[in-house]
Amino acid sequence: MIDVLVAVVWLVGAGFALLAAIGVLQLPDVFTRMQASTKASTLGIGCLLVGAALQLADVAGVVRAASIGAFVLLTSPVASHVIARAAYIAEVPLWKGTKLDERRRDARRDRGEFDGVESTP
């Protein structure tokens, strides 16, 4: 019974990890690719860890699996924010199909208030 559950959870986790990789390959710009890669570090790793905890089923195994989970949950949002911010500041182009960029609009407005003085982007 536990065996079947482990198998299902692992297949789901690996499936999401694979989808994340495909997304990173085929989505159009760095920001959308990042969205896909988040999938691997949430449901992907999450399912694999739950499966591993069920399979090991003892304190040492479960505690380590839980601490990996907690660690990934704490670090992955920080990592994706710093990459996104760095990419935006380095002016990596957004996909041409991007509908709206309100940060650019606000930056222009703020520069306008300072009347021609060029602020750092």
């Binding site: 482990v6 691997a40 992907g44 790793i45 399979q55 992955s76």
Partner: peptide, 12 residues
């Protein structure tokens, strides 16, 4: 991240 997942599966 994927490597971590791989190792977790092998470990289990």
């Amino acid at each position: 991240v994927l490597t971590v997942g791989l190792i977790v599966v092998i470990a289990a």
